[in-house]
Amino acid sequence: MQQSEAPPLKAWLLLLLLAMIWGSSFILIKKGLIAFRPDQLAAIRIASAGFVLLPFLMRRFRIVQRHHWPKLISVGLVGSFIPAFLFAFAQTQLPSGVTGVLNTFTPLATLLIGVLIFQQIVALQQWVGVLIGLAGTVILITANANGDFQFNAYALLIILATVCYGINLNLIKHHIPDLGALTITGVSLFLVAPPALIYLLAATPFIEQLATQPDSYFSLSAILLLGVVGTAMALVIFNTVVKITDTTFTSSVTYLIPIVALILGVIDGEPFLAEHAIGMAAILTGVFVANRRAQKRKSPA
């Protein structure tokens, strides 16, 4: 029983790979925004991610039953579609490194969603972790180069995205236990890819920009890499880790994501303030406290 509680080596290796991929996503969003609007970036990202997995899904559609479809649509919306737009719009006003740090609120959002929606039992120490993480989030949202506190509403878009991720984590774990990771990822992404592509081609000047915008192909390459690797491949890995471990362990990938994001952001010339370091430390401390308590409660079983 105790062995089943310890995450296997495969889970740790996948978690590290996932951190590298997702930690690079924020700088790719930044490069994609050079030539395209945030709504275009999100649409390209989702469309490329949804269609790239289609060749691997033809036989898997047959195992999806009627009761799965609403759940898979929900996974596609809250796990990919909505967050893609939220991150793209947020990074028009936030450095990529700070965005990566704010993303560390995901494990705490997962915990809160588990309590509010899925009746998960939470210990006092987990609530302490949530409060510490919230304090760190407030510091990040109000940090600026002038040294005074100034509210940045765009940071709330990232927090809303982490809430979407929290809902998605719990939905996969508790309501779709009978489907594999590739089926969940591929089908859910494919369901939201056509609306994204239709919006991109019908409601935005995408084709015209490709022909006239000097940096359009550079930005498009960054977004396609973000969609194919940073979304499609990463979500297959992510859902695999959810299946073989638990939601708390999987969401702890955000311990490593901000390190990658901040390093890449600094290399790209972004400022890193003392408030950013304090806020990140507080959020990661909160995640550690909440996660540590959850593991300790499981170990005697």
Rank of each mutant, 00 (worst) to 15 (best):
Q119N: 15
L108E: 07
L111R: 06
Q119E: 14
T104K: 00
L131S: 14
L116F: 13
W127E: 10
A90C: 05
L112V: 13
Q125V: 05
L102N: 04
W127I: 10
S96K: 00
L112C: 09
I132A: 08
I121K: 15
G136C: 02
P107C: 02
A90L: 12
S96Y: 05
V101D: 11
Q119F: 14
V115T: 03
A90Y: 02
V115A: 09
G100D: 03
F105N: 13
V122P: 12
L111G: 07
V128K: 00
A135H: 02
F89H: 13
L112D: 07
A135D: 04
Q120F: 14
P107T: 01
T92A: 10
G114S: 06
I121G: 10
P95S: 14
A88L: 00
V98T: 15
L94E: 06
V115Y: 08
L124Y: 09
F105G: 04
A88V: 04
G133K: 02
I121W: 12
F105V: 13
V128G: 04
L108M: 08
T99N: 15
A109H: 03
T92H: 12
I117P: 03
A123D: 15
F118D: 05
V122D: 10
G114A: 08
L94R: 00
L102F: 08
Q93L: 12
W127R: 11
P107K: 01
Q120Y: 14
Q93E: 15
G100N: 01
G136V: 13
F89M: 09
V101T: 11
V130K: 01
G133M: 11
L111M: 10
Q91Y: 11
T92M: 12
G114P: 09
L111Y: 05
F105R: 01
Q126R: 06
Q93F: 14
G129N: 05
L111H: 03
L102S: 05
V122L: 12
G129W: 01
